[in-house]
Computed example of a mutant assay.
Amino acid sequence: MSTYRVATIGLGVGRGHIDEAWAALPDQFELAAVCDLDDTRLDAARAAYGVEGTKDFDALLARDDIDIVDICTPPALHLPQVLAALEAGKHVICEKPLAGSLRDIDAMAEAEARSPGHLMPIFQYRYGAGAMTARAIVDAGLAGKPLAATAETFWFRDADYYAIPWRGTWKTELGGTMTTHAIHIHDMMTWLMGPVEAVFGRLTTRAHDIETEDTATASLRFASGALGALTANVASQDEYSRLFLAFENVTFESTREPYAVGKGPWTMTIRDPEIRAKIGALVASLPDPGNRFTGQMRAFHHALETGAPPPVSVADARDAIALLTAFYMSAETGREVTLPLPDADPGRAGWPQQARGNAA
Rank of each mutant, 00 (worst) to 15 (best):
T3I: 13
Y4W: 15
Y4T: 05
R5C: 08
T8Q: 10
I9S: 00
G10I: 04
V13C: 13
R15A: 12
G16P: 01
G16E: 06
D19K: 07
A23V: 06
A24I: 00
D27S: 11
Q28Y: 11
C35T: 09
C35W: 05
D36M: 08
D39I: 03
A44K: 09
A45F: 00
A47R: 06
V51F: 02
T54A: 02
K55N: 04
K55A: 08
F57V: 06
F57A: 07
L60K: 01
L60T: 05
A62M: 03
R63T: 10
R63I: 10
I68C: 03
I68F: 06
D70T: 03
T73L: 02
P75S: 15
A76L: 09
H78L: 08
V82Q: 13
L83M: 10
L83P: 04
A84F: 05
L86T: 12
E87H: 13
G89K: 11
H91D: 15
V92Q: 12
C94N: 14
K96D: 14
L98Q: 08
L102G: 06
R103E: 15
M108D: 10
E110W: 00
A111Q: 05
E112K: 09
E112Y: 05
E112A: 15
H118C: 12
M120S: 07
P121W: 08
P121Q: 11
I122K: 05
F123S: 12
R126T: 02
G128T: 02
